[in-house]
Design a protein around this nucleic acid. Structure first.
Lengths: 354, 354
DNA sequence: TTGTAGGCGTTATCAT
DNA sequence: ATGATAACGCCTACAA
C-alpha cells in the first residue's frame, strides 16, 4: 500500500505554474503576485500540503532532529531528562529521536549507527553501563557530529558535558546516614569505570573519612548492568548481608539499584530502617509512597535535559568549530524520609534468624 | 560547524570510477568486477562510509521508520509498550520515533504533523485524553498512511486496533472488591469519551449489577487529563469522599489515576484498606513495594507493542490496500495485594475526625 | 564490466 | 512576476 503526500509539483501542475513559483508562493516571497500567492496557498491548504521534510533534509544537509541515547526510557530519571530535552528542542523546531541501549553496548552501537549517519544534527548521550569501547563515538565526534554528554559522560572526549554533582550528593546523603547513627554503611554502585560511579564513590568515601569511619573495601559492590536485572542486585545484596560485621545501611548509587534494593530487602524480610537503613539515587515519583518512604537523592533531570540541549544547539548552530567546552555540574537534592530514621539503640542488631 | 559524511561521489572521484559503479559495488552486484568491488569496499570501509539514509528515504519513498504517539514515556505502561514496539521494529530494520502528546491535543497534533508528512512509514497511536477532533488522523489515514491504534483507540477509524479487554479486567477487579466485602465502590476514570473509559466503566457496572449492588452516578468521576495532574485527582477524590454515604473503595481506571489516588489518600491520612480500599490499573514495577502494596490490573504492555507493530508492518508491506481489519483484545491480569484486603466488619467506618 | 542520465521533493540561482 | 535549471545523495534503466 502506497502513501503519497501532495508535492509542489502536484500543485504546480494543477495550477499551471512552475514549481519555483509555487515554492516561492508557499514561502511568501515578496516577488510573487499576491493573486498567485493566494491561489497557491488556498490550493495547498485544500490538499493539506506540507513540505517533505526528507527532501528538505537532503537539500539543507540537516534533518532538524536530535538523537538521544539513553539506557532506557522506562526509568524516571531518563524520561524526565527527555522531557527537558523536548521542551527546548520543540521550541527551536527540532525533532527528538530516542534510542535505547538497555545497558547493552551492542544496542547502543546499533542505535548510534543509525542516528549518526547523517540522520541527526546532533547527539545527546548517556553511556550504557556496558560501554568501554568509545571508538565509534570518538570517530563520529572527530567527523564533526556535535555531541553533548549528560549523566554518564565520556571523560576524555572533548565536548560539552552536563552532570550532576554526584560527589556532593553522595557526600550529603552518606553524612546524613552517619548523623542518624549508622556506622556500617555499604555502597551499591554501577559499573566501576563509569565517571558517575567514581564520583559517587568518592563522596561516600569523603563522608566516611570526615566522620572518622573506616572505609571497608568489602562494603563496596558494583553492578555492571546498573541494576537493570533484579538478580544482579539480589546477589550483590545477599553477599553484603553475609559480611561480618553486617552493614547497617545501604547506599545505592543509582535509580534501579535503589528500588531493586528495596525489593530485595523486603523479600528477605529485613526491616527498614531498623535492621538496615536504605538511601539512594532515585527520580521516581513514587518513592515517598513506598514502604517505607525512601530517603533519596533526586537529580534535577528535567533541568539537565534542558541544559544539555541548549549546549547541543549552540554547537550545531555555531558557525565556526567550537574549541572551548564546558562541564556543567548541577546540584541534586536529598529528600529525607523514613528509610533512614535515626537509629534506635535499643533494637536488636543481629537477630538470630537470618 | 558542518558535519559531512563521505558519499558515493567521494569514493568514485578518489577511485576514478563512476558513481553507479561504486553504488553497485557497495551493494555487491554480480555485474561488477571482483577486483573493482574489493577496491571500492576497502576504500569505503576506510572512510567509514554509510549510505545517507535521508537520500535513501527520498528515493525509496520510505524512511524505514515508525512513529509512535503516546501521551508520555514517563509512564510504565507506555514505556513497556515502546519496548515491545522496538523489539519488533529493530528486528525488521525499522527505526522508532517517539512523540509525546502529554495529554495535550495541540502537542499531539504537532507531533503527528511532523511524523506524518512522509517522514514515517506508519504510525502507532494511542490518543491523548484531550483529543476529540480526529480530523487530522482521519485525513492522514485517508491519504494512505498506515496506522494502528493501541490502548486508546479511535473507534470509527477503520484500521487494525490492539486493546486490552478493559471490560473483563474491570469486571474482575471490581468483583474482587465486592467479594472482599466492599459495597460502596467509586470509580475514577479517564475522559469520558475515550473508548477505554467506556469499556472499563461497563465492566465496573456489570460487576455491580451482577452482585445486586446499585449503580450510583454520584460515585463516578472523570479526570480529563488522565490523572496527569495531581490536582485533578485530588479534587476528584475529595469530592468522592464528601459523598453520602461515603465510598468504601476506589477503583481507578488508569495508571496515573491509581498512583495519584494513593498519594491523595495518604495525604488525607485515610487508612487503606480499612477506611478505603484502592485498586486500579497500573503497570508500574513498584506497586508491590508501595504502602500498602496495591491491588492492580496489569496490562500486557510489551505484548501489546509487539502485536501492534506486527500489524503495522503488515499494513506497510502489503502490496494491495488492506480492507479487512482486526481488533485484537488482550487479557490483563489482576494482581491482588493488601490494598483490597477483606473488609473487617469491626472497623469504625465513619471516623469523626477526617 | 562500466558509464550516463533521470528522478525522488525542494530551493537557490540565473534567466526571461 | 515567473520559469528553467542545477544540486543535495542515491539507485536503476538503459546505453556502450
Amino acid at each position: 500500500m502506497k502513501y503519497s503526500a501532495p508535492t509542489i509539483k502536484d500543485i504546480a501542475r494543477a495550477l499551471n505554474l512552475s514549481t519555483s513559483t509555487v515554492s516561492r508562493a508557499l514561502r511568501d516571497s515578496y516577488e510573487i503576485n499576491p493573486a498567485t500567492k493566494k491561489l497557491v496557498l488556498e490550493y495547498a491548504a485544500k490538499l493539506n500540503y506540507h513540505p517533505n521534510p526528507i527532501a528538505l533534509s537532503l537539500r539543507e544537509r540537516r534533518s532538524l532532529s536530535l538523537g538521544v541515547v539513553v539506557c532506557e526510557v522506562a526509568n524516571s530519571f531518563f524520561s524526565q531528562v527527555i522531557n527537558g530535552v523536548e521542551s527546548i528542542a520543540y521550541e527551536k523546531g527540532y525533532q527528538v529521536i530516542i534510542s535505547q541501549s538497555r545497558e547493552s553496548s551492542v544496542k547502543e552501537w546499533r542505535g548510534l549507527q543509525y542516528l549518526a549517519s547523517r540522520s541527526v544534527d546532533g547527539l545527546l548521550m548517556s553511556l550504557s553501563t556496558e560501554t568501554t569501547d568509545l571508538s565509534m563515538i570518538r570517530q563520529l565526534h572527530a567527523q564533526g557530529l556535535p555531541i553533548v554528554f549528560f549523566d554518564r559522560v565520556a571523560e576524555d572526549i572533548p565536548t560539552h558535558k552536563v552532570t550532576v554533582d554526584g560527589f556532593q550528593a553522595s557526600y550529603k546523603a552518606v553524612s546524613h546516614l552517619i548523623e542518624n547513627g549508622y556506622r556500617r554503611i555499604a555502597i551499591l554502585a554501577n559499573a566501576a569505570f563509569l565517571s558517575i560511579t567514581k564520583e559517587r564513590l568518592a563522596g561516600y568515601q569523603k563522608a566516611l573519612a570526615e566522620h572518622g569511619l573506616p572505609l571497608r573495601e568489602s562494603y563496596i559492590r558494583y553492578c555492571d548492568h546498573g541494576g537493570m536485572y533484579y538478580d544482579e542486585v539480589e546477589s550483590a545484596l545477599r553477599s553484603l548481608l553475609a559480611e561480618t560485621p553486617r552493614p547497617d545501611a545501604i547506599f545505592a548509587a543509582s535509580d534501579k539499584l535503589t528500588t531493586n534494593s528495596l525489593r530485595v530487602l523486603r523479600l528477605l524480610q529485613i526491616k527498614i530502617p531498623d535492621q538496615m537503613a536504605l538511601a539512594g539515587f532515585s527520580n521516581s515519583e513514587l518513592t515517598e509512597l513506598l514502604d517505607p518512604p525512601l530517603t533519596v537523592i533526586k537529580q534535577p533531570a528535567f533541568e539537565m535535559g534542558r541544559i544539555a540541549t541548549e549546549l547541543l544547539l549552540q554547537l550545531i548552530e555555531s558557525k565556526r568549530p567550537v574549541k572551548e567546552f564546558e562541564t556543567r555540574k548541577l546540584q541534586a537534592e536529598v529528600l529525607v524520609r523514613a528509610s533512614t530514621l535515626p537509629r534506635k539503640k535499643r533494637i536488636v542488631q543481629y537477630p538470630t534468624s537470618r
